[in-house]
C-alpha cells in the first residue's frame, strides 16, 4: 500500500469470483438439503455427491478469490482506505459470529435457568409439573439432565478439570504464541515470527485432537450424545460450532504461516495476518465462555 495518494479512490476491477461463490454455495446447500431428505439406499439420491461437489467448489473459490486479492495487494494496488474497509469488514464479521454463538448460549441459559427448572416444578412451572411431568426432578447435567423423558437414555457429563482444562490451557497459550508472532512481525524478526505462528498452528491442531478424543469418549463411554436431551443438544452444538471455528482458524493460520514464510507481510502492512489473529482471539474468548458455562458451572 501507500503507492497511491490517500485522496484517490480505489475501486477493484470486475471479478467472476462472486458469482462462482454464489453458485458454489447454492450447490452445497441444495445438495445438503437433498441429502438430509434422502432415504438410505436411495439410488437416485444426488444430494450427497452434489454437496461434496459444492464443497469442493467453495474451497476452490476461496483459493482463487484470495489468490487474486493477495496478488492485487502484493502489487500495491490497495491504499490505506481499502485497508480500513477490510478491517471494518473483518471486525463486523466477527461481531456477527459473536451473535451467532449468542443464539446458542441463549438457548443454554434458557434451558438452565428457565425450562429445565420449570419442568421440574419450580416457580412458573408448578402446573407443568403437576399436570404433565409428575415426578420429574430437575437437575442439570448427568442423569436426569436430559429432561423429563430421559431422551437418549442416561448419560454422564465430561468433567471440566480433565481434557477441557487442558484445552483451555492450549488455547490460552496459543493466544500468547500468536501475540508473540505478531510482535515479531512488527519488529521484523522473521524467525521468531515463523516459530510463534507455527506453534499456534500446532496448538490449534492439538486442541482439535483432544476435542475429537473427548467426543469419542462422550459417545462411547458416557452415552453423552447429541440426542441426550437439551444437555446433549447444547453441549454438542456449542462445542461443535466452536470446534468448527477452531478448524477454520487453524487452516487460516496455516495459510498465513505459508504467506509469512513467503515474505508476504511487511512490518506495517499485514492486514491478512491481523485478521486471522483477531479471528483466533475471538475463537479463544468463545472457548473461555464455553469452558465456564458448559463445563465448569
Amino acid at each position: 500500500m501507500g503507492h497511491q495518494q490517500q485522496d484517490v479512490y480505489y475501486v477493484p476491477s470486475k471479478s467472476y469470483w462472486p458469482i462462482v461463490a454464489a453458485v458454489s454455495m447454492f450447490v452445497t446447500v441444495y445438495g445438503a438439503a437433498h441429502w438430509l431428505n434422502s432415504q438410505p439406499g436411495d439410488s437416485s439420491a444426488f444430494g450427497k455427491p452434489m454437496f461434496w461437489v459444492g464443497f469442493a467448489m467453495i474451497l476452490g473459490m476461496f483459493f482463487g478469490w484470495f489468490r487474486s486479492v493477495i496478488r492485487e495487494s502484493m502489487a500495491g494496488s490497495y491504499n490505506g482506505q481499502v485497508d480500513r474497509s477490510f478491517r471494518m469488514g473483518m471486525m463486523w464479521f466477527i461481531f456477527s459470529e459473536v451473535m451467532f454463538f449468542g443464539a446458542f448460549f441463549g438457548a443454554l441459559f434458557y434451558a438452565r435457568i428457565f425450562s429445565v427448572p420449570w419442568l421440574g416444578g419450580e416457580g412458573h412451572g408448578v402446573l407443568t409439573h403437576q399436570f404433565v411431568w409428575q415426578g420429574y426432578e430437575a437437575s442439570w447435567g448427568a442423569n436426569g439432565g436430559g429432561g423429563p423423558q430421559k431422551i437418549g437414555g442416561s448419560f454422564q457429563t465430561i468433567a471440566a478439570w480433565g481434557l477441557p482444562l487442558l484445552n483451555t490451557l492450549i488455547l490460552l497459550s496459543s493466544g500468547v504464541t500468536i501475540t508473540i508472532a505478531h510482535h515479531a512481525l512488527k519488529a521484523g524478526h522473521r524467525k521468531a515470527l515463523l516459530i510463534g505462528l507455527g506453534a499456534t498452528v500446532l496448538l490449534g491442531c492439538g486442541f482439535l485432537w483432544f476435542q475429537a478424543h473427548e467426543y469419542a469418549e462422550a459417545y462411547e463411554h458416557f452415552n453423552l450424545t447429541l440426542g441426550s436431551g437439551v444437555y446433549g443438544a447444547t453441549f454438542f452444538m456449542l462445542t461443535g460450532f466452536h470446534g468448527l471455528h477452531v478448524t477454520l482458524g487453524t487452516i487460516m493460520l496455516a495459510i498465513i504461516w505459508i504467506r509469512c514464510a513467503k515474505g508476504h507481510f511487511t512490518k506495517d502492512d499485514h492486514f491478512g495476518f491481523e485478521a486471522v489473529a483477531w479471528y483466533w482471539h475471538f475463537v479463544d474468548v468463545v472457548w473461555l465462555a464455553l469452558f465456564l458455562f458448559v463445563y465448569v458451572l
Binding site: 456477527s96 449468542g102 446458542f104 425450562s115 437439551v230 443438544a233 454438542f236
Partner: peptide, 28 residues
C-alpha cells in the same frame, strides 16, 4: 446471525435428534 442460529436448531431438532424445542427432552 441469531435467526441463523434459531433455524439451525430447528434443523438439528428435525434431522439430528437434538431436543432444543422439545419439553420431553428438557427443551421448550
Amino acid at each position: 446471525p441469531v435467526l441463523a442460529g434459531a433455524v439451525t436448531m430447528l434443523l438439528t431438532d428435525k434431522y439430528f435428534h437434538t431436543n432444543f424445542f422439545n419439553a420431553a427432552g428438557g427443551g421448550d
